[in-house]
């Protein structure tokens, strides 16, 4: 319990050295856990990418170098899947962030039932995925779904009922729509928390200077939010790019790169190739995120 000032007179360790040791002690549990659960399997997975892993237990796992990577890179389906992933991720990240921003700004005011309203906004994000997927499939069902009933029979917007979720034309937009709906509450929460800590005095000062609501938004709100928005985009990009269930459960006809990898790993039992795909993806993500962080966010 020695005061900080007195401690600096101790021989042997400087403040920064002690700080360093303390920091590592505080971080130890986190580092160990994440290392075990995440880092070790990642390394293992990278290694598996270079190995052919046969299902037959009598056959050994053989080191095949870059062969599996080469197979993947030469498969046109892989590149198509990458394009689909990019489209899906870009659309859902942009969509959910913008929607989250709009709703946060909308809800950043006093009104009756504000607490409950915020709870309701969160529901798409916190409910179990399989329930939401089935609810959507039910709503969009070509025969007994509400969407087809309302927009075909009641308001004749479309000529006939269609299978929104599975037809080639609509499957991707539907998956994008679903994922935007599901993930915008995350952006909403983060942005709202930040919005609430922007002091009102800033806005009042701007109003005195004659600023309208759009000017206030552009020159006060947005700069204050830039950090939060930046981090939301990064996290959502990383998370959505690697999402599997959110795509596969809703529609089997949107083959993004994670679905492509899943089909290799679990349908074809080809673990080595799936691991190679996984490593390639991770590389791509690391590269794109580092670029983004350096150039755009300038952290």
């Amino acid at each position: 319990m020695a005061p900080v000032l007195a401690a600096t007179r101790r021989r042997g360790s400087s403040v920064s050295q002690r700080e360093g040791r303390l920091a590592w002690a505080l971080l130890a549990p986190s580092v160990i856990l994440v290392g075990l659960v995440v880092v070790y399997p990642i390394i293992s997975s990278i290694r598996m990418g270079f190995t052919h892993i046969p299902l037959d237990p009598a056959m050994p796992e053989e080191f095949v170098g870059l062969e599996q990577y080469s197979e993947i890179v030469h498969d046109p389906e892989f590149w198509l899947a990458i394009v689909r992933s990019l489209v899906h991720t870009a659309a859902t990240v942009a969509g959910s962030t913008l929607l989250g921003l709009a709703v946060a700004v909308l809800m950043n005011r006093e009104f009756a039932g504000r607490g409950i309203a915020r709870g309701i906004v969160l529901m798409p994000y916190v409910a179990p995925l399989i329930s939401l997927v089935f609810a959507w499939r039910y709503m969009f069902h070509p025969v007994y779904g509400f969407v087809n009933y309302w927009f075909v029979d009641i308001l004749p917007i479309f000529s006939g009922p269609r299978d929104w979720v599975e037809s080639p034309a609509f499957a991707m937009p539907m998956v994008i729509l679903f994922d935007i709906w599901r993930y915008f509450p995350y952006a909403f929460l983060m942005i709202l928390a930040r919005l609430q800590s922007i002091p009102k005095t800033l806005y009042e000062a701007a109003e005195v200077d004659g600023a309208g609501s759009w000017a206030k938004f552009r020159h006060i709100t947005m700069p204050e939010l830039s950090f939060v928005l930046g981090s939301i985009v990064v996290l959502r990009w990383i998370w959505n790019f690697t999402k599997f269930d959110d795509v596969w459960l809703l529609s089997r006809n949107v083959v993004t790169v994670t679905v492509y990898a899943y089909l290799r790993a679990f349908q074809s039992f080809d673990l080595g190739q799936a691991a190679a795909i996984s490593s390639l993806l991770a590389l791509g993500l690391i590269a794109s995120v580092s670029l983004y962080v350096k150039k755009v966010l300038r952290w």
Partner: peptide, 28 residues
């Protein structure tokens, strides 16, 4: 706190998410 490797760990911690859960489950 200041300590050696802080930048690395800070930036690196997010890379934990770069590997899809579906594919990590097997080595894990």
């Amino acid at each position: 706190l200041k300590f050696a490797g802080r930048e690395l760990v800070q930036r690196g911690i997010l890379s934990a998410y770069m590997f899809s859960g579906v594919l990590l489950v097997v080595p894990y």
